[in-house]
Nucleic acid binder design. Structure first.
Lengths: 211, 211
DNA sequence: GTCTATACCTGGATAGAC
DNA sequence: GTCTATCCAGGTATAGAC
C-alpha cells in the first residue's frame, strides 16, 4: 500500500518534471505557466503543490534532471570512443544530432542560462552547472589529447562556437549553415591533434592557427 | 502651441522608447512591466496608451530604434576605415567595446531574438532584421575583401562566433576569455586576407583553414 | 498630454474536501 | 494523492477627469 502510493507519487512527479523540461525548453521558463504543465500532464493546478513547494522548485528539479542526462550522455561518449578526439567530435556533432530542435528552440543549456540571467533568478548558478559539466568534460578530453596547458581554453573555445552556431541556427533555421560549421569545427579539431598544444599564458597569441 | 504639444509628446515618447530599450535589454521583454518603464521615465502607467496602443507596439519602436542605431554605427565604421578588413575588425571588437554590458546582459540582438523565438512573438521577424543588417554589412565587407563567392558564409561564421562569445561571456563573466577569442577571430580574419577565398559549393571543406 | 481610478485577466499559491 | 474552490498579486488595458 505505502509502496504503491509512493510509486504513484513518483510517477506523476516525474511526469511533471518531464513536461516542464520540455515546455521550459520550447517556451522558456517564465512563459510556461502551471496551467500549461497541468494541461500536458492532465492533472489539476492544485496538485502541483503536493509534489513541489513552488515553481522554482520545479525548475531545480528540471535542471537536476538535465544534469543527470548530460552526465550519462558524456559517459556514453566516453565509453563509445577510446580516442579523446573522437569524443570531442561526438560533442560537436550534437549540433547535427539535435538540429531539428535546435533550429526550433536553440540550445537548451544556453537559452536557459540566458533567460535566468535576465530574470536574475536564484537558480542561475544551478543552470550554469550544465555548462560546467560540458566544460570539465571537454577540458579532460583536450588534456588527454596532449594539451594540458590550454585544455580549458580550448574547451571554452569549442563550447562558445557551438553556442554561436545554435543561436544563429535558431534564428535563421539554416541546415546547411550548421553542417558547414560542424565540418569546420571538426577540421579545427583535427588540426589541433597534430600541433604541440597552446598555453594559457598572458601573451598567448591564438587559440588555433589559421594557416 | 500645436508645435509645443507635439514636441512634448515626442519627447516623452522617446523617453519611453529609450527606457524600454534599456530595460528590455537588462531584464528581457516579457519580464519588464509597464510599471518598470513608468518608474524610470517618471510617468503614470495610464499615460502609455496615449503614445502606444500596446506593449508590442513599444517593442516594435524599440526594435526600430535599435535598427537605426545599428545602421548608423555600421556607416560610421565604413567611414572610419577604408579597408574592409579593418571594418570587420571594428565589428569583432564590439565584444571588447561593450564587454561590461555583454558580461552583464549578453548580446542585445541575440538575447532579444532568442526570447521572441520562445514566445513565438509576432515581432520575431522584425528583430531578425537586426541580424540581417549585420549580416548584409559583413557580407559586403567580405566581398570587398575579394571573397565574393563565400562572403555570406564568412559573415555567418564570424557572426556566429561573436554570438557564442557573448553567450559564454554572459554566463561566465570572463574578461580574459573575451580578449582571447577576439584575438583569435582577428587572426582568423588576417589569415583570410591572404587566401584566395572560399566557395559556397556543396562539398566545400572548411570555412577557414586551421594550420 | 497626463493623471487617477478601475476593469479584467492570468499568474502562482493556499485550504480543505474527498 | 488528487481535486475544487478560492485568494491575492501583478500584469495589460480602458475610461474619463483635469
Amino acid at each position: 500500500m505505502q509502496k504503491a502510493c509512493f510509486m504513484n507519487a513518483r510517477a506523476t512527479r516525474n511526469q511533471i518534471v518531464e513536461a516542464a523540461d520540455q515546455l521550459f525548453y520550447e517556451q522558456g521558463f517564465e512563459h510556461t505557466s502551471f496551467s500549461d504543465i497541468a494541461e500536458t500532464v492532465q492533472i489539476s493546478r492544485g496538485n502541483f503543490y503536493y509534489h513541489f513547494k513552488s515553481k522554482d522548485e520545479i525548475l531545480d528539479a528540471v535542471i537536476g534532471c538535465r544534469l543527470a542526462n548530460t552526465r550519462s550522455m558524456l559517459e556514453k561518449w566516453e565509453a563509445d570512443s577510446a580516442r579523446p578526439g573522437d569524443r570531442i567530435q561526438s560533442f560537436i556533432r550534437i549540433l547535427i544530432m539535435n538540429q531539428t530542435k535546435i533550429m526550433l528552440y536553440g540550445c537548451p543549456v544556453g537559452t536557459l542560462c540566458a533567460e535566468l540571467g535576465k530574470l536574475d533568478h536564484p537558480s542561475q548558478a544551478n543552470a550554469e552547472q550544465l555548462f560546467d559539466t560540458f566544460l570539465d568534460w571537454l577540458s579532460r578530453q583536450f588534456t588527454l589529447l596532449g594539451h594540458d596547458q590550454g585544455a580549458k581554453t580550448l574547451a571554452l573555445h569549442i563550447l562558445a562556437r557551438s553556442q554561436g552556431v545554435a543561436m544563429l541556427a535558431n534564428v535563421y533555421r539554416d541546415e546547411a549553415f550548421i553542417e558547414r560549421e560542424v565540418r569546420d569545427m571538426c577540421s579545427w579539431l583535427e588540426s589541433l591533434a597534430g600541433s604541440e598544444g597552446l598555453h594559457d599564458e598572458e601573451n598567448q597569441r591564438d587559440v588555433h592557427r589559421p594557416s
